[in-house]
Computed example of a mutant assay.
Amino acid sequence: MTDDFSSAHVPLPTERHPESFQVPAVKRSEIWHPDGSVVLQAQDTQWRVHFSVLAMHSSFFRGMLGLPQPPDQPSVDGCPIIELLGDSVEDVENVLRALYDPSVFHIFTCYVWFPDRHPDFFFLQKALPFSVIASHLRLGRKYDFGADLETIVERITHENPTTLEGYDALKTGNSYHPTRIVHYQGLLYDTITLAGENNLLSVLPCAYYRALVGTIPADIFDGVPRGDGSVATLSPIHRRACNLGRTALLRAQWDSGNTFGWTDDSPEEIGCRDPFGCGQKKYAFFRRHVVRGSLAPFCSVSYVDSLSLCRMCTPDVKAKMITGRQRMWDLLPAYFDLPPWSELKNDP
């Protein structure tokens, strides 16, 4: 593979605007290789890199090889300039740092040449900052950094699974903390926004649910302050989905056959050893959580032990909760007015 870019033509989504390169405020990034063969520019920043590196990881850039280059192509130090329209400096910097970091380059090489191998890490960090995740998803889609994009999508979907087993595996008790994305206040809302903008539709049901149980109702409208002083907010379409989901889930979790439907069962029907006592305990549980507005359709089945029901009711309630939790998970997309799980595809 050659670094010769002298005969390459740059198609959309990149364009050339010679006049834009006359602005004296253009800065050089620290990613500036003296032997680089092409200069990328996003907004007011330039990077000098090797076209062969870009082509190795991106089918978009690989497709430019051998295309004719017009004579008026702007250049810097003899290197043609490709203006990346619509891309942020942060996104380009994040992606190029990954491609050029010697400590992780072998990981990308592994992904490119052996795409069926997917080690359980990326960048040698177990958890990546959300900004890095977002950059690689956006540019991975736009320029088809195939292996990079695949691992990023896997990381997001791991944190927001499509199965109840996957959801339960990420919990410690009834609490959840992300393991592959660095946590911060506002992460839930930012994940929803990113997934919606990049067609990761299978992520939305779990992310919506987590947003409901991980924040207070007012946050759906007001947003959640991030650590840097900015506020993570939801667009109207996502606010609508969350509000529909909250109302639907609060009602459905008590329906017969769902997670807490057993609260309305007659103790005598299952051979209860203490009909009055178990009946009172079930009613007290129901009343307490209805009054509080508790939303917990996927709470741990082990919670039943704390109710101190009789030895006949306890296993019966646990079995019904197991079935009810699964039923509600299967219907989770519908509570947010989304298509069934089978129709929620990721198309990054």
Results as ranks from 00 to 15, higher is better:
residue 24 P to R: 00
residue 24 P to F: 08
residue 27 K to V: 08
residue 27 K to N: 04
residue 28 R to W: 05
residue 28 R to D: 06
residue 28 R to Y: 06
residue 30 E to K: 14
residue 30 E to Q: 12
residue 33 H to P: 02
residue 39 V to P: 00
residue 39 V to K: 07
residue 40 L to N: 04
residue 42 A to R: 10
residue 43 Q to W: 05
residue 44 D to P: 00
residue 46 Q to L: 12
residue 48 R to Y: 03
residue 51 F to V: 12
residue 51 F to W: 12
residue 51 F to E: 03
residue 52 S to E: 02
residue 52 S to Y: 01
residue 53 V to A: 00
residue 58 S to L: 02
residue 62 R to N: 08
residue 65 L to P: 00
residue 65 L to M: 09
residue 67 L to R: 11
residue 68 P to Y: 06
residue 68 P to W: 03
residue 69 Q to G: 10
residue 69 Q to V: 10
residue 70 P to W: 14
residue 76 V to L: 11
residue 80 P to D: 01
residue 81 I to C: 02
residue 81 I to P: 00
residue 82 I to N: 01
residue 82 I to W: 00
residue 82 I to A: 00
residue 83 E to Y: 13
residue 85 L to V: 13
residue 86 G to T: 11
residue 87 D to Q: 07
residue 87 D to L: 09
residue 89 V to I: 15
residue 90 E to V: 06
residue 97 R to T: 08
residue 100 Y to N: 04
residue 103 S to T: 15
residue 103 S to I: 15
residue 109 T to W: 03
residue 110 C to N: 15
residue 112 V to R: 09
residue 115 P to D: 10
residue 117 R to A: 10
residue 118 H to M: 14
residue 119 P to I: 08
residue 119 P to D: 08
residue 123 F to R: 07
residue 126 K to Y: 03
residue 127 A to T: 08
residue 128 L to F: 11
residue 128 L to S: 11
residue 133 I to C: 08
residue 133 I to N: 02
residue 134 A to R: 07
residue 136 H to G: 04
residue 138 R to F: 12
residue 138 R to T: 09
residue 140 G to W: 08
residue 151 T to C: 08
residue 152 I to D: 06
residue 153 V to M: 13
residue 153 V to T: 09
residue 157 T to K: 08
residue 157 T to D: 01
residue 158 H to P: 12
residue 158 H to N: 05
residue 159 E to Q: 10
residue 161 P to F: 03
residue 168 D to M: 05
residue 169 A to Y: 01
